[in-house]
Structure formats: C-alpha cells, structure tokens
Design a protein around this nucleic acid. Structure first.
Lengths: 139, 139
DNA sequence: CGTAATTCTATTATTATAGTAGACAATAGC
DNA sequence: GCTATTGTCTACTATAATAATAGAATTACG
C-alpha cells in the first residue's frame, strides 16, 4: 500500500500541475483544495523541495510550483521518490534493491521472480503517465 | 510492500505445494527449509488453516498440507487472503474496497483511476501464476 | 499413559506512520 | 525599516502495525 503521506504528495503535485505557469501557489491553497492537513503538508512539500521536484519562494506572495514541466514528471518518478520503490518486496526493487530478511538466496526464491514481474508491470503503467495527463476514465 | 508475514506465508505454501500428496508436513520442516521463525510460523499456519487454504492434523505424525491442489491456488488468492488486497490504495481494492481517508470523492480523484489500472495489471500477473508453477526465470 | 505434534490466547518489543508545536528565516510591499 | 505573510527546520508525540515470543491447552498415535 502507498502511505497516506505518499498519497498526499501525489495529490499536492497534481494540484501544482494544474496551476503550472501561474506563479507560486500558497500551501493553504493546496491544503484546502486537496483536503490535506496543512501542518503535515509543510513536511511533505519541504521534502519534495529538497528532492528537487518543486521550487519554492518564501515571504509574501510566496508558495510552491513544479520545478519541471508536468509532462516530465511521471507517477513512477513520484512513487520512487516518496516511497523509495515501486516493488512489493525489497528484493524486487530496481533502484533500491535490498535482500529480504530471513529469505532464501534470491536465485532460489520463486517469490522473488514473481515480484520482479509485478514490479515491471507496475513500472510500465506508472512510468507511462505524467502529471500532465488528465487521466480520464478511458485511458 | 508485502509484509514479512505475507512473504513467510507464501513461502510456506510453496513448500507445502512441493510436498503435495505426501501426507502431513510438520511445521519444523517448513520452518527449517524456508528459514521462517518456528513460533511465528505457527501463527501464520493457524491463520491459513482457519481460512481454509491448508488442512492440519495434530498429534504424532501430524502437520500441514494444502487443502486444494497447488494448481488451484494462485498467488493472487494468497495475497488477497493474507494481505486483504492487491491494490496500492484502499480505494483501488476490488474485494476490500474502502475510501481513502482525507481524500477527494473517488469520481474526482485522478490517483484513484491510476491505481485501478495498477491493480488490474498486478492481478493479471498474480492470478495467472499458481503454486504448481515452477516459476523459472523465463516465464 | 507418554510423547510428539498442532492450537490458542496473551503479551511484548520495535518500528513506521501520521500528525503537531513552535521557533526561525525570508520576502514583498508600504 | 516595519510588518504581515509565507515557507523551513527540528523536535516531539500519539497511535497503530508488525514481528515475534511465551506458555498453557489440545489432539492423536502407539
């Protein structure tokens, strides 16, 4: 499962994508529209800023905006950044691979091979959709 | 991510599939071969037994065995039983649907639609593989 | 009966998650 | 320069989930 925090991050980024090119969007705007607890959102947006996904400006008329064009940010990127991995087991992660605790060697683990396939399919879907996508019911 | 417990459950069931038709397999056999803490495995196998996936016999020469033929147990079934859902968000679960907390209505939530697609792809993979599969590197 | 096995209930330790508090820093506009 | 506004950072807390253990109870075979 994606954590609540990851879900908030994605919806916040969607909101910024919707207002891309309109200058800084204040945090309270995002919080209210997307129903995200404001204080928690400060933590989330600060992390996204540190990771280079959003730019910020302090002070009056400050706020947040996407550091890249929406079309250049895929859902796969976001999940990898906020959650660390798309995979369902540590051993199946491509970019954050770890061996599972108390497991057989990967070469003997049937679950490992299955999880690689699930990860590949998940990546195929999430890497093909960007924040620019309207994501209507029929895509 | 799948929990450690779910991963143990899957590997335990694989072990039982490997010895299907050979009578009761004692818990310690499974624990040793699969490197699963024995006491924890009792909890896991008891649950699988309550859910009807394995049958058990107590006492001397007792143990566990699959209640169904390995070919009739898919990885999708196992994950749904032990984890509740294949989906990455509560709102994207087909059999254990819940609305996400602090979310927009599902009809307006772009993330919801994306997660439905990921769940469908995950289900396609996991429902197509059964415990009878050797799951070699090339399938 | 005795031994080898599973079963059940309860408990614990650890970690992750979700969220809050409050001091601090920067900026724009008057 | 003042001040209101807005983001930043560190620390903290409460709750829940996870992983695992303890120990008594039950069953069944011989």
């Amino acid at each position: 499962m994606l954590s609540q925090k990851t879900r908030y991050a994605i919806r916040a980024l969607q909101h910024l994508a919707d207002h891309h090119g309109e200058g800084p969007v204040p945090l309270t705007d995002i919080a209210e529209t997307q129903k995200i607890p404001a204080k928690f959102l400060t933590v989330i947006l600060s992390e996204l800023s540190r990771e280079g996904l959003v730019d910020t400006q302090r002070g009056r008329d400050g706020g947040y905006w996407l550091a890249l064009s929406p079309i250049d940010i895929s859902y796969g990127d976001i999940v990898r950044l906020t959650r660390g991995s798309l995979a369902l087991t540590p051993c199946a992660s491509r970019f954050a691979h770890e061996s599972c605790t108390n497991c057989l060697p990967e070469s003997e683990c049937r679950l490992h091979r299955i999880m690689l396939r699930v990860r590949d399919e998940t990546a195929r879907v999430l890497d093909s959709i960007s924040l620019a996508e309207p994501v209507s019911l029929d895509i």
